[in-house]
């Protein structure tokens, strides 16, 4: 089980996490999409939001225990990984109806138009790249016993 600790108070807004996320997923996508993937910095799974008081908040999927997205999906395309605890999109089953993204209360899931595919944080299948590259400790990965 992987858990990501998010500490907005420590975030400097450098967005290294966004770039790390894009790089980490480019390879996987290239394989899944048969060469159509590649690096797209425009749609990382983690995004640093700037609040009205100029605070930085890294936003990414919370992998909710009672996840609305899973309940919203009618095609069994969202499954929780037993190994990492992340909710993962089964792209073969996904029909791109978009109800998961609509149901997510936090906006941490969205449609990538170029591929197209629903994208969300999958904790990098166990080794979150964002946490690895975060210089301030605002994002920290921890492995928990099940």
């Amino acid at each position: 089980m992987i858990r990501l600790h998010v500490s907005p108070k420590l975030c400097s807004g450098c967005r290294s996490c966004e770039m790390a996320c894009s790089y980490a997923h480019a390879e996987v996508e290239a394989r899944v999409a048969g060469g159509l993937g590649g690096l797209r910095p425009g749609l990382p799974r983690v995004r640093v939001s700037v609040t009205g008081t100029r605070a930085f908040v890294p936003m990414l999927c919370f992998q909710c225990d009672e996840a609305r997205c899973i309940g919203a999906c009618k095609y069994g395309a969202l499954e929780r990984s037993l190994r990492t605890g992340a909710i993962e999109v089964n792209e073969e089953r996904c029909t791109l109806c978009g109800l998961c993204a609509a149901a997510c209360p936090f906006g941490n899931m969205e449609l990538e138009h170029s591929r197209p595919a629903m994208v969300k944080c999958d904790l990098c299948r166990g080794e979150p790249a964002c946490a690895k590259f975060c210089p301030t400790g605002a994002l920290r990965g921890a492995s928990l016993p099940r």
């Binding site: 600790h5 998010v6 500490s7 907005p8 108070k9 420590l10 995004r47 939001s49 700037v50 609040t51 009205g52 008081t53 605070a55 930085f56 908040v57 936003m59 993204a101 997510c104 209360p105 936090f106 906006g107 941490n108 899931m109 969205e110 400790g137 920290r140 921890a142």
Partner: peptide
Amino acid sequence: HCPTCKRRSSAEKFGELPARRTREGLSES
């Protein structure tokens, strides 16, 4: 609401939460 707008409004909420102590000794909201 579109994901971008939802993300923006939830970031507002999370950004304002007070820091708290966790088991690992990290400060986090």
